[in-house]
């Protein structure tokens, strides 16, 4: 089994899907070169008609993907930064999300919109956000946010084969991180969380880069005698409620951890769901560890204070235990 970077796992997933299904096409700004490397080299194998460089037109990339999808193709579109989802918000939230419903299912809507999310380069408010929370609300989308190269490969292949629009959130700090990806083909179903670490005192739910931080925090807490269960959501829509609720039933405490802003965040939705469905299991209020409600600040010092850290996750767990 080889260790390959996250981007190579994505690249392999796309190449395999393009090879076995000629309807799969890739489009976006600079996808031939590959801005972050995930699509690099695909044009050499599949040609320029299936690996399409687009003009700088984010709403168009999303809208074109919809037009391609409802006329027989299976586009994998790339929006360079998750912040740019808002440029394409009408196409994503109003159109592709609703299309299957308002056409009465006359057509599948097989679209993957890949994007790079999150901080790490300290480049401020329009290139560093985690915007997935904004897209929990429109019906008809699926949202995937892998934390490892292994999952990125298996989840992207499932997303490409899905007949619904899938927002595929890739954290830019994960792109270079290597991970074990088996040589044999495998799929990871959308809607299945992974329990990364078993514990009995507190459940921590995270996704993307926050899974790694939650695991580090849980190791620290273990030394302090606290047993933390870490769940990697992997898919936010549909959310694997069964795994989450089973864990909360066991631990009685939940901490959600996200890099996005707290107000209206993913954690708010998850906390509400747990209150509705497992209130009797809760021994303490749900704690949300998230970014403050400010634009992502510029510069390394401010960004480091803005993004949830291992100490802030430990603090969140301590609050849940208090």
């Amino acid at each position: 089994m080889a260790e390959i970077p996250f981007t190579a796992a994505l690249n392999r997933a796309m190449a395999e899907e393009m090879k076995q299904d000629e309807r799969v096409v890739v489009l976006g700004e600079d996808v031939r070169a590959g801005f972050f490397g995930a699509t690099s080299g695909l044009v050499d194998i599949f040609g320029p008609e299936r690996v399409l460089n687009t003009p700088i037109w984010e709403s168009g990339i999303a809208g074109m993907a919809l037009g391609l999808a409802v006329t027989g193709l299976r586009p994998v579109a790339e929006l360079m930064f998750a912040d740019f989802f808002y440029l394409a918000a009408d196409e994503i939230a109003n159109q592709m999300a609703s299309w299957h419903y308002v056409t009465g299912g006359q057509t599948p809507v097989p679209i993957v919109v890949r994007t790079a999310a999150g901080g790490g380069f300290a480049i401020g408010y329009n290139h560093s956000q985690c915007t997935e929370a904004s897209f929990l609300n429109p019906p008809g989308l699926k949202i995937v946010a892998p934390s490892t190269a292994h999952d990125a490969y298996g989840l992207l292949k499932s997303a490409i084969r899905d007949d619904n629009p899938v927002l595929f959130i890739e954290h830019k700090l994960l792109y270079g991180v290597p991970g074990e990806v088996p040589d044999e083909e495998y799929l990871i179903p959308l809607g299945e969380a992974a329990v990364r670490r078993e514990g009995k005192d507190v459940t921590v739910l995270a996704w993307s880069t926050m899974v790694g931080k939650a695991l580090q925090a849980s190791e620290e807490l273990e030394k302090q005698g606290v047993s933390v269960e870490v769940i990697d959501a992997r898919t936010l829509v549909p959310l694997d409620e069964a795994t989450l609720l089973a864990s909360v039933a066991k631990t009685g405490r939940l901490v959600t951890v996200e890099e996005g802003r707290k107000r209206g965040g993913v954690g708010a939705e998850i906390a509400a769901t747990v209150m509705e469905k497992a209130f009797g299991s809760l021994k303490a209020p749900v704690v949300r560890v998230a970014a403050p409600n400010i634009p992502v600040p510029s510069g390394p010092a401010a960004e480091a204070m803005h993004v949830p850290s291992v100490p802030s996750i430990i603090g969140g767990v301590r609050t849940a235990l208090a």
Partner: peptide, 13 residues
């Protein structure tokens, strides 16, 4: 909103 969707359909063809 359908400007780009129409471009996609024509591109598909």
């Amino acid at each position: 909103a359908d400007y780009s969707i129409a471009v996609g359909a024509a591109l598909s063809s």
